[in-house]
Each structure stands twice: as structure tokens, then as C-alpha cells.
């Protein structure tokens, strides 16, 4: 079990009527990874997750969770997987605690209350444990969905937009919790439209566009490939030395933008300015973020 990938997807295609939802997608996620699956609405993220969870069946190709085929060995595959679905679903007949007990039972677990209490505490739901699901706010229902995905302590956890509609403070505590779970060895896969979350949390990123995998790399490499560091300066007087002027882009009002190959180059630029007797009024550094990478990827044809 040690060297088996947490998730392996091999040449998966899926068509819904006239819509090719996934086109020959392959990717492998190793155990312990914190992985982001990104893409615009309708790119195929949820379809891929549904196939991994057994909610949809691939037309061709094979998906495995911890080495278990999601079709032929579906019971083992599902035992190893926890999914937080995107839709805010709940059963209005039950309280939060009942919901979690029932979900534990579905996974063959009885007397799971110690773990249920711990999840409830970590997700700040303990005070709502005996409230009916109907009475919870949207953010709380979302957290119950997370709790439901965790009742059976799955080694692989997929979160499909877990922070949609959750306020900032809760979002942070939720990520803190997920990060701790990741640190204890669980594999985390998430989809989100908050790209700064993905950039901040995930070490590796896949991007889907119209059902095709268009990027699959370390977050750092993706960011690096997206472009150079940019130095924005405002100078006084407005006389940039010629060696800088030739490579600068004027932003108007004595403001310029310079592309830097590395952070090292900053020193050099400052030195040139000092010798030329030009003083700095303002300075800032811009690094391309995941949003820039994402936009580039989506615009590429």
C-alpha cells in the first residue's frame, strides 16, 4: 500500500450526450499531496470527481483510489475516499449528530462518537450538534458536509469547492484544519475558484479546460513559467538612466515598470539609480500569481 498512488486516473473520457465532459485525462496524485484541480465552470472538475467517487462512470479509461479500481473494486475504493460535494445537500429529518452517526454507519462504523465529537469541535459545530440540519446557516451546512466526508477517516479527501459561501474567518479555520489533516498523511484534493487559496495551500496543480488537462505541475514551477518579477518604481527627477530606460516600460507620471530575471537584479537597478542621482519616490515588486497563470492557460488555445 505504501507506494500506491492516492489517486490514479488513466486516459479517462466521459461524454454526456453531445458534451465531451472529459477528454483523455490522465494524472497521478501521490499519497500525502495537497493538490488543486482548477478550471472554469464546466471544465470537467466535478465530472472527474464524480468518476473518482463512483457517482459517474467513465466511458473509457480507469480510475483508482489507493490502488482500488472505482468500478470493479468500488467498495474498497469508496472506503478510502471522502468527498465533500459541491451542492449544499442535507437530510432535513435529522440533527447534525444524527447525520454524522448515520454517515458513519454507512461506512460500517458503529460507536464513532469520539471521532465525531472531535470533528465537530474542529469544525466549530459542537454547539449545533443537536440542532436540526434545516436550522443551520449555509456556512454551517457546508461544514457538516466536510464532517460527513471525514467520519470514516479516509486517507484520500476530495473537496469540491468547500469554501463557497463560507465567511473569511471560517474559511481560514477550515483550511487550518484541512492542512493539519494533510500533515498527518492524508491526501487532499480540492477545487476552488479562490485561486489565492490554491496557490497558498497546494503544492501541485492541475488545470482543466473544456475537459482537457492543460497544465499539471508544481505550483512553484507554474508560477515561475508565468513570467518575470516586475519592479515598479516612481523616480525623482524623471530622468531614468539610458541603460534602464531601454528596458523600462513607462507607466506615466515618472513611473516605470522593469522586468527582473531574478530578485538579484534588484540590487543592480538600485545601484544604477543611485549613481545617476535619481531618487526613489515609491517602489513595489510584483510577482505573477496563480490568477495570472490561470488566465494565461485559459487564453492559450
Amino acid at each position: 500500500m505504501k507506494n500506491v498512488p492516492a489517486i490514479s486516473v488513466e486516459r479517462i473520457s466521459k461524454r454526456f450526450g453531445g458534451l465531451q465532459a472529459l477528454k483523455n485525462v490522465s494524472l497521478t496524485i501521490e499519497q500525502g499531496e495537497f493538490f488543486a484541480l482548477l478550471g472554469a465552470n464546466g471544465a470537467g472538475k466535478t465530472t472527474l470527481i464524480s468518476i473518482l467517487a463512483g457517482l459517474a462512470r467513465a466511458d473509457t479509461g480507469e480510475a483508482r483510489i489507493m490502488g482500488h479500481c472505482v468500478q470493479h473494486d468500488y467498495r474498497a475504493a469508496r472506503r478510502h475516499l471522502g468527498v465533500v460535494p459541491q451542492e449544499l445537500a442535507y437530510d432535513p429529518f435529522f440533527t447534525v449528530r444524527e447525520t454524522l452517526r448515520i454517515q458513519s454507519g454507512y461506512f460500517g462504523l458503529r460507536r464513532n462518537d469520539d471521532w465525531i465529537d472531535e470533528i465537530l469541535t474542529r469544525l466549530e459545530l459542537l454547539s449545533k450538534a443537536d440542532s436540526n440540519m434545516r436550522s443551520l446557516s449555509g456556512g454551517m451546512k457546508r461544514r457538516v458536509l466536510v464532517a460527513q466526508a471525514l467520519v470514516h477517516k479516509p486517507p484520500v479527501i476530495i473537496l469540491d469547492e468547500p469554501t463557497a459561501g463560507v465567511d473569511v474567518a471560517l474559511r481560514q479555520s477550515l483550511w487550518q484544519f484541512i492542512r493539519e489533516i494533510n500533515q498527518t498523511g492524508h491526501t487532499i484534493v480540492l477545487t476552488t475558484h479562490y485561486l489565492e487559496e490554491a496557490q497558498h495551500l497546494c503544492r501541485r496543480i492541475a488545470m482543466l479546460k473544456l475537459g482537457e488537462l492543460v497544465a499539471l505541475d508544481d505550483t512553484a514551477s507554474l508560477l515561475k513559467a508565468a513570467g518575470d518579477l516586475e519592479l515598479h518604481i516612481a523616480v525623482n527627477p524623471d530622468h531614468l538612466p539610458p541603460e534602464l530606460l531601454s528596458r523600462a516600460k513607462s507607466l506615466g507620471n515618472a513611473r516605470y515598470c522593469l522586468a527582473l530575471a531574478s530578485a538579484d537584479e534588484l540590487e543592480q537597478v538600485l545601484c544604477v539609480l543611485r549613481t545617476a542621482g535619481v531618487s526613489l519616490e515609491d517602489v513595489s515588486l510584483h510577482r505573477p500569481d496563480l490568477e495570472d497563470v490561470f488566465v494565461q492557460m485559459m487564453e492559450r488555445t
Binding site: L55, R75, R78, R79, E87, A89, I102, Q103, Y106
Partner: peptide
Amino acid sequence: GNIVFVLLPP
């Protein structure tokens, strides 16, 4: 949509 809770388990 809560049918998903009985479709996800083994």
C-alpha cells in the same frame, strides 16, 4: 441532492 450520501459509501 442528499441521495449522494448513500451513493458515496461502500
